[in-house]
Amino acid sequence: YQVGVAVALAVTGVFACVHLAMVFLHVAPSNTLTKQNGQAVDDWIYPEFEQNWKLFAPNPLQQNVSVEARAELATADGGRRTTGWIDLTAQDAEAVRHNPMPSHTQQNQLRRAVDFYFNSHNDEHRPNGLRGRLSEQYMRRIAVQRLDALPSLGGSDVRRVQLRAVPRPVPAPRWGTEKPKTSAPTYRDFPWWRITDADRSPGAGADRNPADAAPNRTEEVR
């Protein structure tokens, strides 16, 4: 028993040290180590552990961004139907509210995933770097996991998903002089994405159509 505990602690300690080293190299100025091991550092950091400084001046966040999703489902008669928009951010907010110890996932996963996607795509949703496809895959898998967990969609055959980001300006305080240009939300629709077994949790796609296992491709909005 003691040997097992010692081994577990040693493995945990090694993992923590490696993680701290990778994060340090990621945020550190360019140097010999980062130049030699940049790809390994990026593979470790992205997409889950990406770092940014948007909390601080001179450009703190001044808007709330909600992430909404809808799905195209296969029906029993061989047809398709599209769900309404489902506010994924509202689900996270409800899980965090009155929770003294909310999870990192509930607080940051959607927000960071959207930032990652927008930073790696242009306004036409075309990847502008090597991490573009990775960010798309990350967003797609988050959407599928969230939709599969909804009781209203339990057991449904989700074939495609679409997300949209809905930024809403944060109102200025009563004593503030800065006024937002508009208080109305804006909508930025993502493309429709076909869902494959690779996007689902292990075992979740066992009964799916084999044709859906084909490599994914971004589709135009119908």
Rank of each mutant, 00 (worst) to 15 (best):
G78R: 06
R81N: 10
V18G: 11
R194T: 15
D189G: 05
N59L: 13
Q2F: 01
A165T: 03
L153W: 01
W192G: 04
A8G: 04
G205P: 11
V114T: 04
T177P: 00
W53F: 15
A213P: 06
Q109V: 05
A93Y: 08
A21Y: 11
P60Q: 05
F116I: 07
V3A: 06
D43S: 05
A28L: 10
T12G: 14
I86E: 05
W193E: 15
P167E: 02
T82S: 11
V144A: 01
P151Y: 10
K179Y: 13
I142L: 08
A16Q: 08
N99K: 09
L25Y: 05
D115S: 10
V67T: 12
Q109R: 08
T34H: 04
A172E: 00
T182Q: 11
P171Q: 01
A6M: 03
F190D: 09
A95Y: 10
Q107G: 00
L110P: 04
T186R: 09
N108F: 11
V11P: 03
P151V: 01
D148M: 02
D43E: 02
T34Y: 06
R164W: 01
A184K: 08
H19I: 05
W192E: 04
Y46M: 09
Q106Y: 04
H104L: 06
W53T: 13
L61C: 12
E178H: 14
Q51V: 15
E48F: 12
P215M: 02
A28P: 07
A40T: 10
F56C: 11
P180R: 04
H26E: 14
T196E: 15
Q51D: 14
V170R: 04
V166I: 05
A172N: 00
L61F: 06
F49V: 09
K54S: 15
